[in-house]
């Protein structure tokens, strides 16, 4: 029970709060703040459950894509904000940093492998979210409204 709490609940709460912090920078107000935060917590939960690999990042991005599409339909507003914020915890900031460290220290082998891992993470995130969005849109076409913007 205790490990469950420390391994999953605490990180998800942290991801939620970090994403709410980001909503202040992106000028998101009201309900959007909550949705973006929940999206961030969801992405981190999926990432942890799937084993913290590149594939896990892909799955987390898919979860975000679907979640954001559903939310944008519920609230009738652009999907952009939710995806942007919710993906941020997974963006490989650590990868960039460690790649730089290895590069400066002259450890070419480790530098290259970290760099490739960073690119892999970034690609997994981008492809996952967009793929989920596209498939979701193809399966559930938006209801036709008058003068859709």
């Amino acid at each position: 029970m205790e490990t469950l709490f420390y391994d999953y609940v605490v990180p998800c709460v942290c991801a939620f709060l970090a994403c709410v912090g980001f909503t202040l920078m992106f000028n998101i107000h009201g309900m959007g703040k909550l949705i973006a935060g929940v999206g961030g917590a969801l992405s981190w939960l999926v990432y942890l459950l799937a084993g913290s690999t590149i594939f896990a990042a892909f799955l987390a991005a898919v979860a975000i894509g679907v979640f954001a599409e559903i939310m944008s339909r519920v609230r009738l507003c652009p999907v952009t904000g939710y995806v942007l914020v919710a993906l941020l915890p997974l963006v490989p900031g650590g990868g960039i940093y460690y790649a730089m460290r290895h590069c400066v220290a002259g450890e070419t082998q480790r530098f290259l492998s970290t760099l490739l891992h960073t690119f892999g993470m970034a690609a997994a995130l981008a492809v996952g979210a967009m793929l989920a969005s596209s498939v979701f849109r193809a399966m559930f076409p938006r209801l036709r409204r008058t003068g859709k913007g």
């Binding site: 605490v10 990180p11 942290c14 709060l17 970090a18 912090g21 980001f22 202040l24 920078m25 000028n27």
Partner: peptide
């Protein structure tokens, strides 16, 4: 358009990294 005050945005800049640390 409603905007956060500079202090609010600054708080965001502090809070986001703070909660990334445990992650």
């Amino acid at each position: 358009e409603p905007r956060y005050s500079p202090r609010g945005v600054l708080l965001g800049y502090g809070v986001a990294p703070a909660f990334f640390a445990p992650l």
